[in-house]
Computed example of a mutant assay.
Amino acid sequence: MMKNTLLAILSFSISMTTNAFAAPKNMPIDFIGEWCTPSKDGDITTYTLPSWTEDHKCNEILSIDQWEFVFNMGGDVETYCNPESIRTKQDVAPSGVAYFATISANCREGLNPNRKSHRTYEFKRYKGNLMIRSK
């Protein structure tokens, strides 16, 4: 009896510990990579894959990995964003697949932990182009 009670308490403690920490959100695989040479049209910024740029030269790189994305706006200005929630969808057409993601992220300017903000981004990828709208 004592053994069963001890096992139940131990099991409950383990489940409470694992549920107390939310796992970090993973960026969708379709957006991971280095994107560069942004162009702005209204509130939408379009990035391209390095192979899609003129002379294959990049500037102002957007780096997306599994855990975060980093905007480098030239010089020492960088914005680091960690996703908190991600909604994805895709649209399939004969010419290719468009990938969409709405990402709520906790962002910070540079390495300064005091300059944090919560932002929502809409990502759309079609072939070698990535369009981002910040809400």
Rank of each mutant, 00 (worst) to 15 (best):
M2T: 09
K3T: 12
N4R: 11
I9T: 14
F12M: 15
F12C: 13
I14F: 03
N19S: 13
F21R: 08
A22Y: 04
A22M: 07
A23T: 08
A23G: 09
K25R: 15
M27G: 05
M27W: 03
P28W: 07
I29S: 10
D30W: 08
D30R: 06
F31N: 06
W35V: 07
C36D: 02
C36Q: 05
C36L: 07
T37V: 10
T37W: 00
K40P: 00
K40Q: 13
G42Y: 04
D43M: 11
T45S: 10
T45A: 13
T46H: 03
Y47N: 11
Y47C: 08
Y47P: 10
T48R: 15
L49K: 15
P50C: 06
S51W: 02
W52F: 09
W52Y: 11
E54V: 14
H56R: 13
C58A: 09
N59I: 00
N59R: 12
E60N: 12
E60I: 02
I61C: 02
S63P: 00
S63Y: 04
D65Y: 05
D65H: 05
Q66W: 04
Q66F: 03
W67C: 05
V70Q: 13
V70D: 05
N72D: 14
M73S: 08
D76I: 01
V77S: 11
T79N: 06
T79K: 13
Y80A: 00
C81P: 05
C81G: 04
E84I: 11
I86L: 04
Q90G: 02
Q90L: 12
V92F: 03
P94W: 03
G96M: 11
Y99L: 02
F100Q: 03
F100V: 02
F100G: 03
F100N: 11
I103V: 10
S104N: 13
S104H: 03
C107W: 03
R108S: 07
R108N: 09
E109V: 13
L111V: 04
N112D: 15
P113W: 00
P113N: 07
R115S: 13
S117W: 01
E122F: 08
E122N: 06
E122G: 09
E122R: 10
R125W: 05
Y126N: 09
N129E: 12
L130P: 07
I132D: 09
I132Y: 01
R133I: 04
R133K: 15
S134G: 04
S134E: 13
